[in-house]
Simulated scan of single mutants.
Amino acid sequence: MNPLAIVGAFIITFSLLAYGIGSISLIRFKIVGSIVLIFLSLGLVFDMAAIALMIVGARETSFTLHGLLGYSAYLVMLVASIGVWRVYFKHGIDSRITKPLLRYTKFAYLWWVIAYFTGSLIILWR
């Protein structure tokens, strides 16, 4: 495996942790706090860096089943994060989250976790 892809796989784990802290905090407390904003944003940054490293370090095309699953997972987490930031800008810190956005965030996090573990399983089976 290419060293860049290995570093990308390592960074994606930081993304999992950041998304997890941000999403679970939001789901648990149902408010847009600074922890939620910081960790969702960190998750996006780590995820984007990891995706870029894995694309550059990949031997095959980036349009595989796992690649498309990963890109779509990033997109749904991006939309969830934008929704949370919109609530923050509109209502301020410690504002309550709407039920539809809370449901979407749960879905987005679950989708992202599925993409993460799918990638891990693909690497194990190679």
Rank of each mutant, 00 (worst) to 15 (best):
W85D: 05
Y71D: 07
F46Q: 04
Y116R: 04
N2H: 14
L17H: 00
L69C: 04
I97Y: 06
R126S: 14
R86A: 13
S81M: 01
M1Y: 00
T61K: 10
G83I: 01
F117M: 04
L121V: 10
R86V: 14
K99Y: 07
V76M: 10
G92W: 12
P3E: 01
L53E: 03
R86Q: 12
S34A: 11
F117S: 04
M48Q: 12
L53H: 05
Y104K: 09
L75E: 04
I24P: 00
L110F: 07
A108H: 03
T13W: 13
A115L: 14
Y116W: 12
L44I: 14
L44V: 07
A9I: 09
I55S: 04
W111F: 11
V84G: 03
Y74W: 15
G33C: 14
F29C: 05
G67S: 11
S72V: 09
S25M: 08
R96N: 10
A9F: 09
G57K: 08
L102K: 14
S34P: 07
A5N: 10
I6M: 09
L124F: 13
W125G: 01
P3H: 00
I55A: 08
M48C: 10
A50W: 06
V84R: 03
F89C: 03
I82N: 02
G22D: 03
K90E: 14
L65I: 08
A80G: 03
L40G: 05
L26A: 08
I24E: 03
G67C: 13
F117C: 02
A80Y: 09
I27G: 00
F29A: 11
I55L: 15
I24C: 04
I24R: 05
R86W: 09
V79Q: 06
M77C: 02
L121T: 07
D47H: 04
A18T: 06
G92D: 12
I27N: 02
S95N: 08
Y19H: 09
Y74F: 15
F10G: 06
I97Q: 06
I12E: 05
W85Q: 08
I122N: 12
T61V: 11
S41I: 04
W112M: 05
K99F: 06
A52L: 10
S81N: 04
G22L: 02
T13K: 09
V45W: 12
M54W: 00
G92R: 11
I21N: 01
G8H: 14
R59F: 08
P100H: 12
F46V: 02
W125Y: 11
S81K: 00
M54V: 04
L69H: 07
I38Y: 06
F29P: 00
Y104L: 11
R59E: 14
K30S: 08
H91K: 15
A5R: 09
R126K: 14
V56I: 15
V87L: 13
T105Q: 10
L53Q: 05
V76T: 06
M1W: 00
